[in-house]
Amino acid sequence: MIDPLTSLIIGFSVILLLVIIFYPGKGLVARFKKNKANTYRVLIEDSLKHLYNCEYNGINCTLNSIAGSLSISADEAAKVAAKLEELGLVVSNENGLSLTPDGRAYALKVIRIHRLWEKYLADETSIGEEDWHHSAEEIEHQMTLAEADKLAAQIGNPVFDPHGDPIPTAKGDLPGKKGKSLDSMKIGEFAKIIHIEDEPHYIYSQLVAEGLYPGMQVQLIESTKERIKFLANGEEVVLAPLFAKNITVAPIKDERKIEGTFKKLSSLKPGEKGKVLGISRRCRGQQRRRLMDLGVVPGTEIEVELESIGGDPIAYRIKGATIALRKSQAENIYIESEE
């Protein structure tokens, strides 16, 4: 028999080794997966996407902008562009580079997969929004169109991604741009966020950190060269104009325009009542559908009925049934209090 000390040491080492290899995010396996990306195909597809974005937004595209957006050297960008021309996906003219019909179709395919995947992650998984983009950047180069169609069918053929961007159809149709940027709003004007641009990443993550997402009601308070101040679902947000440009808004149609701060269901005390104004867009997918199925729709009266021992979850009386919701859910339900 091996003596206990030796075997203990062996035992601990084996466990340590396994941890090093499999540790999520930082382990060897995870690192290996990360490094596999950035191949030739990726460069081609990313530049097509970039060119398409320029076209969609009516900007000119150059080798430099490609190099910038893909973070590669100008030399490499030139090589990629040459290859694209050779494949008949791009032509160069006096304004720089532009897509051929084939190139556009290819770009749309990649965009379709990207946006579908983001939508899938947002609705059908618990992966946080800061990780969607990154994951979609990988998947878009791996998935085939047929797989994407299957995925789309499973999640109800969505037409918008979670940032509010339209998803191209399988045939490559895409509607034109809608709405205007937040910084062009008038003081006191009401509008709804319909889109938040997810590139560049540092701006997007700042906007996410501010708690902004498509579907929010905004009202402009102040607009100067230095800063733009507005209410988003009743909470004050201050952004630099450059950042505000990345937010697209559209006029509010049928919904009620709500002045002042939004009250949350979680703020009610036992015995208090409120009337639902809406569910925050932050609550998505199954969770959102479930809430609506349970009767949490605008106009529904909700009363706090019972607090559990730790104060979370809390049971609410909703349309005659007693339904327990966790605090994190109640925070996503906006209400107006009722006397």
Partner: peptide
């Protein structure tokens, strides 16, 4: 079922 409209 609560609803026939969701895709769950």
């Amino acid at each position: 079922t609560y609803s026939l409209l969701s895709t769950s």
